[in-house]
C-alpha cells in the first residue's frame, strides 16, 4: 500500500512539472500582458511602461522567468500578485472561505438530495416518479445558470423581497443568520445542476447493484426490504460515487464562475477570471498549480477509499 502511494505521488510530481510548464508557456506566450491595461491611462508613455516591465522582471527571457518562478515555488514561495501586491497564497486564502461556504453548501445539497432521488428512482423504475425526475433532471441540466440566477433574484429579491439580491453578507451585520439568508439563493441555484447529475449517476449505479446476485440472495434469505436497501444496495451503489466525488473535489475548491458573478460572491472562480483578465501571472499560475494538486490528490484519495471499502479491489 505504502509503495503504491509513493509511486503515485512520484508520478504526480512529474505531472505537476509538466502542467506548470505548459501553463506558464500558454500564459506568457499569449499576446498582451500585465501592463497593457495601463496603456489607455492619460499620460502613460511607452517608455514608462517599458521601465516598469524591466523593474518587474518581465523583460527577461521566458525560460529565465519560468525557472525563477519554479525555483521559488520549490522552496514554498508562490510569488506576489501583480494586481494587489499580496503573496499569492494569501490571495488564494482570502477567497477560500467564500468558496468553501458556497461550494460546500451546494455540494451537501446536491449529494444528499441527488443520491436520495437517484436511489428512489431506481427502486421505482418505470413509475411516474422515475419519469418525472428524469424530465426534471433534463430541464435542470439545460437551464443556463446565469439565466436561472437572474430569474431567482427577480422572483425572490425584487418581487417578493424575501432574500437579498446577492453578496455574501450585509456589511456591518455579518451574523450567522445574515450569512444564511445570503447563502440560500446562490447555493440552491448552484446545486440544481449537480442534483440532476448526481441523481442520474446514483440511479444507474443503484440499478446495477439491484440486479446483482447478492441482492437476489438477500431477498431469497427473506431479509426485509429496508435491510436489503441499506445493508446491501446503498453501500455498494455508493462505490462508484466515491470516484465521482474525488473528481469533483477540485471543482468544489475551484469555485463557480457564473454563480459567483450573478450573486457577486467573492469566490475562486471570479478570482481566476479577474487574474486572467489582468494577466496576473503569479496568481493564475498559483491557482493552476493548486487545482492540479487537488485533481491529483482527489483521484488518489478516491482510489484509496474505494480500495478500503471494496474488498474486490487490490492496490499494488
Amino acid at each position: 500500500m505504502l509503495r503504491y502511494i509513493t509511486s503515485r505521488l512520484g508520478q504526480s510530481l512529474i505531472l505537476l512539472v509538466i502542467v506548470s510548464f505548459i501553463g506558464f508557456a500558454v500564459l506568457t506566450l499569449a499576446p498582451g500582458g500585465p501592463l497593457s491595461q495601463f496603456a489607455l491611462s492619460p499620460g502613460m508613455t511607452q517608455e514608462q511602461i517599458a521601465k516598469i516591465a524591466a523593474q518587474m522582471g518581465l523583460d527577461r527571457p521566458l525560460p529565465v522567468q519560468y525557472f525563477d518562478w519554479l525555483r521559488h515555488l520549490v522552496v514554498g514561495d508562490w510569488g506576489t500578485s501583480y494586481r494587489d501586491g499580496q503573496p499569492v497564497l494569501a490571495v488564494i486564502g482570502s477567497h477560500l472561505f467564500a468558496t468553501l461556504l458556497l461550494m460546500g453548501t451546494a455540494t451537501v445539497i446536491s449529494v444528499s438530495l441527488g443520491s436520495a432521488i437517484g436511489i428512489a428512482s431506481a427502486l421505482r423504475r418505470g413509475t411516474a416518479f422515475d419519469y418525472t425526475m428524469a424530465v426534471l433532471a433534463m430541464v435542470a441540466l439545460s437551464i443556463p445558470t446565469f439565466w436561472f440566477g437572474l430569474i431567482a433574484i427577480y422572483a425572490f429579491s425584487l418581487q417578493l423581497g424575501w432574500l437579498p439580491a446577492g453578496n455574501m453578507y450585509t456589511v456591518g451585520d455579518g451574523s450567522v443568520l445574515d450569512y444564511l439568508r445570503h447563502l440560500i439563493l446562490p447555493a440552491v441555484v448552484l446545486a440544481l445542476v449537480d442534483v440532476a447529475v448526481w441523481s442520474r449517476y446514483m440511479r444507474t449505479s443503484t440499478l446495477t447493484v439491484i440486479n446483482q446476485d447478492f441482492v437476489r440472495t438477500a431477498r431469497a434469505k427473506g431479509l426485509t426490504r429496508r435491510r436489503i436497501l441499506f445493508r446491501h444496495i446503498v453501500g455498494n451503489s455508493l462505490v462508484p460515487m466515491v470516484t465521482l466525488a474525488g473528481l469533483q473535489l477540485p471543482t468544489v475548491l475551484g469555485g463557480a464562475l457564473v454563480t459567483e458573478t450573478v450573486f457577486t460572491w467573492p469566490g475562486m472562480g471570479r478570482l481566476f477570471l479577474d487574474s486572467l483578465g489582468y494577466s496576473d501571472y503569479p496568481v493564475v499560475m498559483g491557482l493552476l498549480m493548486a487545482s492540479a494538486i487537488l485533481v491529483l490528490l482527489g483521484n488518489l484519495a478516491a482510489d484509496l477509499i474505494v480500495a478500503l471499502i471494496d474488498p474486490r479491489i487490490l492496490l499494488d
Binding site: A30, P31, S36, Q37
Partner: peptide, 11 residues
C-alpha cells in the same frame, strides 16, 4: 480580449 488589444498591438 483587452489584454491583447491594448498591449503591443495598440502601443
Amino acid at each position: 480580449p483587452p489584454a491583447v488589444m491594448w498591449g503591443d498591438y495598440w502601443m
